[in-house]
């Protein structure tokens, strides 16, 4: 397959020349996905921990729903956010459609269930381990939320990375709510889709390689931070 060597050459050419539109696209991809993951973590971590620790009516239903939402197709999320943000929709007055903000909103909806569901599992396991001890110290579920989130932080980073993986890899939602507008809402995944539609498969695959490399470096960075801080705390 010549496509693969062409793709590699295309990717290398773009990176080495520090192609201006490439850096813009990469920058926007990171801005959108990292913001979405940060907001999703702020919501998903406490919500996931609360579901794990509190016993309430309908809890089973909520656990199943959050788990099911992990499999929500991005294109459906995109469509929902489109209908909400469209001028004809309830939030139309803000004029947010086809902006990076709309893309962040869509990705927050995609990523929050992933972080919440994984957090619930992690915290539930920790609670089984520590419940007796914490209760003997007079700490109920309310006090345990921050304590266990902190205790499980290294495992929870993996939950956040899973969310980041989802955000940076999806194309369905950002395509619909962003519109893939050059210099405004064009990110890595939508440019790949665009190059495929132009039939420039080598360039598309090259962009895919760059995206994979970026994702790998973010994961490597997180792993290194995890391990160096773990050693400090040991």
């Amino acid at each position: 397959m010549t496509n693969f060597s062409d793709a590699f050459a295309a990717a290398l050419g773009l990176v080495l020349s520090l192609d201006a539109s490439l850096t813009e696209i990469v920058g926007l991809s990171l801005q959108v996905s990292l913001s979405a993951v940060a907001i999703a973590a702020l919501i998903g971590l406490p919500v996931g921990a609360a579901i794990a620790l509190f016993r309430f009516r309908g809890r089973f239903f909520i656990v199943v729903t959050v788990n099911a939402l992990m499999g929500m197709p991005p294109v459906v999320v995109g469509l929902i956010v489109y209908l909400l943000l469209s001028r004809a929709g309830p939030f139309g007055v803000f004029g947010l459609l086809f902006t990076p903000t709309a893309m962040i909103v869509a990705q927050v909806l995609l990523v929050t269930p992933i972080i919440a569901a994984l957090t619930r599992q992690v915290i539930e396991d920790l609670w089984i381990e520590y419940e007796e001890q914490m209760r003997s110290l007079g700490a109920g579920p309310g006090r345990a939320v921050p304590a266990l989130l902190w205790d499980g932080r290294f495992t929870l980073i993996t939950a956040i990375l899973a969310g980041f993986g989802r955000a940076s890899a999806e194309v369905g939602a950002v395509m619909i709510v962003g519109g893939n507008i050059d210099h405004v809402t064009r990110v890595m995944t939508t440019s790949i889709a665009l190059e495929v539609s132009k039939g420039d498969l080598a360039l598309a695959l090259g962009l895919g390689m760059i995206l994979l490399t970026l994702s790998a470096s973010i994961n490597a960075g997180a792993y290194l931070i995890q391990h160096s801080t773990k050693r400090w705390h040991a």
């Binding site: 926007l28 990292l34 913001s35 940060a38 907001i39 702020l42 902006t99 903000t101 962040i104």
Partner: peptide, 13 residues
């Protein structure tokens, strides 16, 4: 850090 990143993201391009 998460908050700063979030606010940066929400600022208009």
């Amino acid at each position: 850090t998460a908050l700063v990143a979030a606010v940066m993201g929400l600022m208009p391009a």
